[in-house]
Design a protein around this nucleic acid. Structure first.
Lengths: 224, 224
DNA sequence: TTTAAATCTATTATCGATTGTTTAATTATA
DNA sequence: TATAATTAAACAATCGATAATAGATTTAAA
């Protein structure tokens, strides 16, 4: 998870974990689209592994919200509605606002510098047209931000939710103005540096809502 | 989960699900204590099922936070520190406050009545000395409350977190004055009925913090 | 023709056995 | 005695195969 952004990998032996990451990539790259059914036995044959390993990977992705399933019926890539998206925004604002309030009391200058570094990299990636990388860095930024809260449960919950809606968010991000996103990040960083609770809350809300608005409009048109 | 409190059970066939519930019961009843190791093969033999089914149940409980594990090393009942508890309180307040704000705009009289009914049942259970039932009803109350928000992601997140810390909370609840808890519930219900955002926020915060305080004190003494 | 039972098919859920890893115990070496 | 190499035991991870289930298809009755 946070791995995508610099971290050593000592134990990369667990097969089901590899399958899981492979599947995440495949969903991310739209090899599997919303609603597509994933058949354990077929995938096992395709990857040359046992059904059990595939199954374990699937269960994990189900828990994360990437996939959904019903007993004896099977597993499919989850599809999202406009309402689902609104729910994500609502909850994200609540969780990241909380993170911001907690951060203020304990964030270090090093952590702030780290957030700035990620933002700079993001802008660089944007200019190079490396969308994939830009998206990953955006995720890294928000994860890092939540981590500075020092609340592990919050981080856990955030990741749990975040990844379940990854595919959803990434799709829209690619259509957004990267400079604007980066600017929002800077505003948030400044608010953190000033340790100003109200500014942080405002920055979080505006950042998330602005990021999600275009997608929201799009979905509202498509579904409802 | 919400099942414990009135719901039809059409498909009660999935073995791993039964094992999971059995294990939750066992952890709940302290058959397995914090730190205890759970061995897949041994448990499979004990229950007369295959290791695969046990394993699946365990993975699910790991995802919920009941258990923790490391690849190739095994699975153990998670233990909690005072810090963990503080984190739970912090996040619960945030999530339930959000739930309250959302509820105000859409909660129905029927739902309010339902909350009252659960609270009444809780008091009855207290008077009968049925601690087990009282705890379940308390959980049912909070779940129902969060459900009235109409935000499914929030419900999902709440359950995810809640159950991971069930054993922790229940332990302390049994030592608390049940009448006081019920009173807090009533205050919250009244605030909802009045559709008053500030009152709801206040009621939520005070309810959760008062519920958790004695346990917090206890843990602070024991650990830190 | 419509409905209901019976059969078939695809796929999940479960099983029993095998393989790979970790940890602890044992022996060898300094 | 202390440290390193070796072996043994316990157990998780993975496998290949079987049983159970839902859904589709066919057949039988009305």
């Amino acid at each position: 998870m946070t791995e995508s952004y610099g971290k050593k990998r000592l134990t990369r032996t667990v097969l089901s974990e590899q399958i899981k990451e492979q599947l995440m990539e495949d969903i991310f790259h739209k090899k599997y689209k919303a609603g597509d059914r994933i058949v354990e036995s077929a995938l096992a044959r395709e990857l040359g592994v046992s059904q059990a390993s595939v199954r374990e990977a699937l269960r994990s992705l189900i828990a994360m919200g990437f996939l959904e399933n019903e007993p004896f019926k099977g597993t499919a890539v989850r599809s999202f509605t406009a309402k689902d998206l609104m729910e994500v925004v609502t909850v994200r604002v609540a969780l990241e606002t909380l993170a911001g309030q907690l951060s203020i009391r304990r964030i270090t200058d090093e952590e702030i510098a780290e957030l700035e570094r990620i933002t700079s990299e993001m802008i660089a990636a944007s200019k190079e047209g490396d969308t994939q990388r830009r998206i990953r860095l955006n995720i890294a930024f928000h994860e890092k931000f939540v981590e500075t809260s020092g609340n592990k449960l919050l981080v856990q919950l955030y990741n749990y939710m975040h990844f379940g809606n990854w595919s959803l968010l990434t799709g829209s991000l690619s259509e957004m103005d990267p400079i604007q996103i980066a600017t929002r990040h800077r505003i948030l960083i400044d608010a953190l540096r000033a340790r100003d609770p109200d500014k942080v809350a405002k920055a979080v809300r505006e950042h998330i809502e602005s990021t999600t608005k275009p997608l929201s409009d799009m979905l509202a048109q498509a579904n409802l």
